Amino acid sequence: MLTQEQQNNVVALCQKLIQSPSYSGHEDGVVARLKEFFEANGFDSVHVDKYGNVIGCMKGNRPGPRLQFDGHIDTVPVEDASKWEHDPFGAEIVDGKIYGRGTSDMKGAVAAMACATANFAKATNRDFAGEIYVAGVVHEECFEGVAAREISAYVKPDYVVIGEASQLNLKIGQRGRAEIVIETFGKPCHSANPEKGINAVYKMAKVIEAIRTLEPTHHPVLGDGILELTDIKSAPYPGASVVPEYCRATYDRRLLVGETKESVLAPINALLEKLMAEDPELKVKASYAVGKEMCHTGNVIEGERFFPGWLYDENDDFVQAVYGELKAMGYNPSITQYNFCTNGSHYAGEAGIKTFGLGPSRENLAHTINEYIEIDQLVKVCDCYTGVLKALMK
């Protein structure tokens, strides 16, 4: 277990990170705090890439694997601070909890990763094999895994530990996520004479009903590949007596292991082709949404919104090595899957890197008013991360 000094250190770092607001694209304050910590605690190098991800590296005295801790440092906004009982950026401690935006999602985990690495290097006098990387990742709330591509290209990790909330349980997979855009194209005219045009919204209504007849894909562990309508827009808007010539619907598609961009769109495209064959006036197409955001470095980050699912076997050697070490330390983690999407979509889903999740706090505290992390969870996950290093850095 952590010494009192180590407990104080991880709480203090967590508070510093919370006190630096870091909405997506404005993470520079947290980057500065992490750089300070890395430099003050003997990390061998600190790297900030073009997107503004910050990566600290601690090297052992012997060659060995590269392990990367991954924690995003951006948060969703605080829409109305007056609804909070505690200052969302005050990092106040009340009844054993630290309150603030990003405590649970996921600056607590980032602080624990950084402190665990420093603790491990000091306790072993760096007599361990390999290199440990702590990555503070930007723009995860906008699109999971896009900024992470730059990190894995730099680090080339053998293992990745995702710090998203898991209540100290091991997470060995997740469904992925895609945003699918359906567009219908009509013909504008005055709404007093609608027969002279083609209403793109009416056409979209037929498409939506047809899409609802598609059978979802299924995985025995991850469940259904859900396809759910999330928004719909027409143009021109407001209509002002004009029949809409364009309509766009967005769908959230939960992705299962092995699904590709092509395989996911194939049944949708087949359905749309059938509908167009039946209705000569229907013009419709499907594609993936593209995200584009400005980074705190001034560079643009852009990516198609397709983030693959992934799943490892609980009997895989690296999973059992960590599980066994945590059990030996007195913890009793279950081995399950995340219910939401993480940067693991890139590391495991795209790059095939051995990845698992282990984090403090509960999933349902993310993005909430009065978000908090229990200090007990923060301290314990820091201890657990030390166990991960003992298990894998051999």
Rank of each mutant, 00 (worst) to 15 (best):
38 F>S: 12
179 E>L: 14
161 V>H: 06
99 Y>G: 12
390 K>A: 09
25 G>I: 04
288 Y>C: 13
142 C>S: 14
373 I>C: 13
107 K>S: 01
273 E>K: 14
51 Y>V: 09
45 S>G: 11
201 V>T: 08
308 P>T: 11
162 I>H: 10
233 K>G: 04
126 R>Y: 12
13 L>N: 01
82 S>M: 04
45 S>C: 09
227 L>Y: 06
312 Y>L: 04
263 S>E: 06
93 I>P: 03
111 A>K: 13
3 T>M: 13
18 I>V: 15
377 Q>S: 14
279 D>T: 07
358 L>W: 00
280 P>I: 05
383 D>N: 09
201 V>A: 06
234 S>E: 13
160 V>C: 15
192 A>P: 05
385 Y>W: 01
153 A>K: 15
12 A>I: 00
175 R>E: 09
27 E>Q: 10
314 E>A: 00
317 D>H: 04
166 S>D: 12
160 V>D: 10
140 E>G: 13
96 G>V: 08
206 K>C: 06
128 F>H: 11
212 R>F: 06
368 T>E: 12
72 H>S: 03
215 E>P: 07
182 I>A: 15
308 P>Y: 11
168 L>G: 05
380 K>W: 03
345 S>D: 08
343 N>R: 13
11 V>E: 02
297 T>S: 08
370 N>A: 04
274 K>W: 01
153 A>V: 03
328 A>M: 01
362 R>W: 10
113 M>K: 04
285 K>M: 14
211 I>P: 15
303 G>Y: 00
102 G>W: 14
325 E>H: 01
